[in-house]
Design a protein around this nucleic acid. Structure first.
Lengths: 138, 138
DNA sequence: AAGTATTTTATAATGATTCTAAAGTACTGT
DNA sequence: ACAGTACTTTAGAATCATTATAAAATACTT
């Protein structure tokens, strides 16, 4: 450790204080090439194994919520067991493997010209989320 | 009360015993013209007001689960607060009004030729669910 | 009507998430 | 650097939806 400059800036840019805990979580979540899909307990496990000092569960919740509110994370609606989060904050969709419960990103381009033909007077579309459930062939 | 013959048959046809509780819930859920979107607590409130005798919460859960397993109800993934159920068991999608938290059915025809262009080897698509979040214009 | 399998029920248990309020840390102005 | 304030972290309690438990009630079969 530790070149945190990038993450310090990132946090500062949206008015979050760069605390030790937020920086640790930042690194775990954003210091990677690919999209990361996780639940709070996934994150907790990773923290437990990768980090020397502990971060309390309440802080993990707080931090993830802050990141979400500031637009660093997206919450995904899959089921009601627990919340899933995604480091890919662009418009996109998901495969959900029913066998493994794993998520896989699905690009906007992977879906043919999706258009909603119905409109509701006085309402506008905020987002469109496609969830494609998949399972083993056989 | 009470021409339950229809519901008795319905339950019998999938091997569910037509108990008093199941018939009551059947009537509330399926004796209506339009699709019904509800949570367990919605259902509990309706039972509390419409029915003379009480039905225990555990039974409401059990019954809804049985109906779901037998294909009379569909579970909808909206958020992680609680489970939502839908009496419309055909392939269809939803508007979710972010202001009121209300659901609205979206027919397959209301969506232009939705095609998933990506495939995963060894996996097949089980279902495709589109959730369109809407909010007030302004 | 008796015997067995299912169902209902109240209540306890669980698990995810939020709340609380005290202790710790970061920032501001000097 | 220092004091004062505002924000964060923390452990633990509280909450809420859901599931488990096991005894009493009901439905079905013969």
């Amino acid at each position: 450790m530790s070149d945190n400059t990038e993450f310090v800036k990132k946090l500062r840019s949206v008015g979050l204080r760069p605390t030790k805990q937020r920086l640790k979580i930042c690194k775990i979540l954003f210091d990677r090439k690919n999209t990361f899909h996780f639940t709070i307990s996934d994150l907790q496990k990773i923290i437990k194994t990768k980090i020397e000092e502990k971060v309390s569960l309440a802080t993990i919740y707080n931090t993830v919520h802050s990141f979400k509110k500031k637009g660093y994370l997206k919450e995904i609606s899959i089921n009601s067991d627990k919340s899933y989060y995604d480091t890919n904050i662009t418009n996109h969709h998901h495969f959900l493997d029913e066998e493994t419960n794993e998520l896989l990103d699905l690009d906007d381009n992977d879906i043919s010209n999706l258009k909603i033909k119905k409109t509701i007077p006085g309402k506008k579309i905020k987002s469109i989320e496609v969830l494609v459930k998949i399972a083993n062939n056989n």
